[in-house]
Design a protein around this nucleic acid. Structure first.
Lengths: 97, 97
DNA sequence: TTATATTTGCCAATATTTGTCAAGACAATA
DNA sequence: TATTGTCTTGACAAATATTGGCAAATATAA
């Protein structure tokens, strides 16, 4: 299962003609980790997102938003009550503002 | 930090004058676990929700929805991009239907 | 083919989650 | 005050999940 985050960072990387190992060495992990993250096999750790954004010269907030959306999706995937739960949370954070 | 789920099941339990140990023994866990779940100190396991709904004679879907909302909230709590991420996920699940 | 890039499966280390137990807080009441 | 029953809390161990590295397999390009 692909992730929005993974698809996006692969797009960013390949458009800049960077190799997995370029990203990997800067993030200080094995090449295979980046491969897995891009393909949605693994989730990147939240703290790594900002670093990755720098490496890819990408907007940190954009990547974080995509990552959050993936996390949210993991929670509600396949849940019949997903819609209700999402609405409830939306209301809650609006109240908080 | 209280949870919607915890608040609700405590309400259901006390209104029926059930004790923590009544629920605990039926769920086959220690009393302290139920206490913590009600107070939001711990998350209940998803598989336990249906069982708990039976114990409390509650609507399974209602409890599951509350639980999902709590999980979603955990993901986006304190995130500036929470709103965007939520919208993105809502759209995605609508497309899926 | 050869060389390079990416993917995949598996492993050990680490981190997180789960439940138990024991001690303590609290309220009701004898 | 002492006792009883309920609930709460923290420390701990066991079970589970996550993480990254390695090496082999597979793709891609020249």
């Amino acid at each position: 299962m692909a992730t929005q985050f993974g698809d996006r960072i692969r797009e960013l990387r390949t458009k800049q003609k960077m190799l997995l190992r370029h990203v990997a060495s800067q993030l200080d992990v094995d090449t295979s980790i980046i491969s897995k993250i891009e393909r949605g096999d693994r989730q990147i750790k939240k703290e790594q997102i900002a670093v990755l954004a720098e490496i890819l010269k990408a907007d940190k907030e954009e990547l974080l938003t995509l990552w959050l959306a993936d996390q949210l999706y993991n929670v509600i995937e396949g849940e019949p009550m997903a819609d209700e739960a999402l609405k409830s949370v939306s209301k809650k954070i609006k109240r908080e503002k």
